[in-house]
């Protein structure tokens, strides 16, 4: 700085690329993902193989499809503990409706969409009507759905899993949409990855480019203030829960059309994985901040960690410990990077 010319006003200078990147909410998650990736590249021999990476992507996509709407919901300041079993409910409805009425499978798919959306509507409606914490409301829905899943399946199918519907009309075309896969040079890519990417793109567009996106941030930042400036708080909240339901429907159909039979007791506990993915991705537990891309990166970190531990052949008795520790480290790194970025920006 020899001061030969006057320095330009720094506020008017175009922000450098690095500085613009540092301002993004996903940055910390990306740094965490890179760290986990490098770590397992060294820790596990088979981690970097193409086949392994496709397995990891698939695993991330199954969590990621649900992490997207759950992230939006968390930005809007709410939780959904029923998200995990709702996936199973959705798959059960399709399977049992089609089988019992010997209907075209697509009819079951449509009925399942309606039922699942109705559950989302119920969650949202109960929340706005009772003003109780969403934690309590959806905990109730979670338990009720767990019971309904087992109860109805036993009542209708006579067993704890549904009958096979693989030979029914409409199954192949529905399978193509929800559970197809391609072999590219020995690597299997599953369609859920496309669903996942499409949902991330859609959610990002909604959040950053539409009025609804502004409403979501406003409701999560402070519902009363949002209401005062004319944001339709009720509509936004119900919409967010129906978004979770829509994605639960997609996930549920994927499980059904992948395996042809649904186990009624599954899905319990997965709701936390979705929340973890969203939080690693930069969503605040208190609402008002976060991004869909971040949640996708969070799901990817989860996929890398849960599969990486297996590839590294660590003792499975400690699996949950390693998983928790890695996730905590990734989140800490995320928080640290974001703090530094905010300090510099």
């Amino acid at each position: 700085m020899s001061g030969a010319s006057l320095p330009a006003d720094e506020r008017l200078a175009p922000a450098s690329l690095a500085r613009r990147l540092l301002g993004r909410p996903e940055l910390g998650a990306v740094a965490g993902a890179a760290a986990v990736f490098v770590f397992f590249s060294f820790a596990a021999d088979s981690f970097l193989r193409a086949a392994s990476l496709s397995t990891i992507l698939y695993s991330a996509s199954t969590i990621g499809i649900m992490a997207v709407p759950v992230a939006l919901l968390m930005i809007g300041g709410e939780f959904d503990l029923s998200a995990g079993v709702m996936v199973t409910t959705s798959a059960l409805v399709t399977s049992m409706f089609s089988y019992q009425l010997t209907a075209n499978v697509w009819a079951g798919v449509a009925v399942s969409l309606l039922v699942t959306l109705a559950i989302g509507l119920f969650n949202g409606f109960m929340l706005v009507r009772t003003e109780l914490p969403s934690f309590i409301i959806t905990l109730g829905t979670f338990l009720m759905l767990t019971g309904l899943n087992l109860g109805f399946t036993k009542l209708i199918s006579g067993g704890v899993s549904t009958q096979a519907i693989g030979d029914m009309e409409g199954f192949p075309s529905a399978k193509a949409l929800f559970a197809s896969q391609w072999d590219i040079g020995g690597v299997t890519l599953k369609v859920t990855i496309l669903w996942w990417l499409a949902l991330v793109a859609l959610a990002t567009w909604i959040l950053l480019r539409t009025r609804a996106g502004n409403w979501i941030f406003a409701v999560g930042g402070g519902a009363d203030a949002a209401r005062a400036v004319g944001v339709p708080v009720v509509k936004t909240r119900i919409g967010l829960y129906m978004g979770v339901a829509l994605c639960a429907w997609i996930s549920g159909q994927h499980i059904l059309f992948s395996y042809d039979v649904v186990q009624s007791g599954e899905g319990v506990g997965n709701e936390f994985l979705y929340i973890i993915a969203a939080v690693i991705g930069g969503c605040l537990m208190t609402g008002g901040y976060g991004s869909a891309v971040g949640a996708a990166v969070g799901a990817f970190i989860f996929g890398m960690t849960s599969n990486g531990i297996v590839y590294a052949q660590w003792n499975p008795d400690w699996f949950k410990f390693f998983l928790g520790a890695m996730l905590l480290l990734a989140t800490l790194l995320n928080a640290w990077v974001r703090k530094r970025a905010e300090a510099r920006a």
């Binding site: 096979a164 599954e266 590839y311």
Partner: peptide, 28 residues
């Protein structure tokens, strides 16, 4: 079931020389 299938896939990715699996949820 889905997670168990994933673990078998992990074993295939690692090119193990043999797999032992319990089929409690066979379709998965």
């Amino acid at each position: 079931g889905q997670a168990q299938a994933q673990l078998v896939q992990n074993a295939i990715d690692q090119r193990v020389d043999g797999i032992i699996v319990s089929l409690a949820k066979p379709e998965a």
